[in-house]
Amino acid sequence: MLETISALAMPMVAVLVGLIMMIGKKDYFAAFTRGAMEGLKTAVRLLPTLCALLTAISLLNASGAVEMIAGWLAPAAGAIGVPQELLPLLLTRPFSGSASTAAFTDLLSRVGPDSFAGLCASVIFGSSDTVVYVITVYCSSVGIRRTRWAFPCAFAVMLFCIFFSCFLCRIWFA
């Protein structure tokens, strides 16, 4: 039911826009192409940034660093109430949407989607985003080079999100 509503949200907006174009008195199609052109320019401007960022992330994924660091952190994670199975997800989440989706899918298939670790992972996956990607894209799209306190704040929020998710799952699904 909810998924149907969500799946319909996008087509509904498209239909609404179509209706406006059909009934409206102004030349709304011209407005569409004008807006689309602006959007296209922004997207193209992002390619140089994405080229650098995705190359670095691709290197990181190929290096095997995530598996290694996850191995080191495993004992510490258990001690502070974060299931150690979550580590590959937590280490990839800030950098890469595709790598963290892969880590999440892998985790669900290994420990089960409704195990404690699976539930914690689901809540974290649903309430966090690819911090480095988002801030880099947002800032470089308007030519900002100095991001000031954006990264420290975003990482602090993400860290809080991890602990809070595990804590909430512990009492919610007890």
């Binding site: 689309a36 052109m37 997207a43 992002l46 390619l47 080229c51 190359t55 691709s58």
Partner: peptide
């Protein structure tokens, strides 16, 4: 991985181009 990363950036940009065109266009109409 270096080559994949650079090629991946083009793919991401291509799909971003489509999304930016569509949504910025609809946003302008709205």
């Amino acid at each position: 991985a270096v080559i994949d990363g650079a090629a991946g950036a083009v793919q991401v940009t291509l799909s971003l181009c489509g999304m930016m065109c569509l949504w910025c266009g609809m946003m302008e109409v709205l």
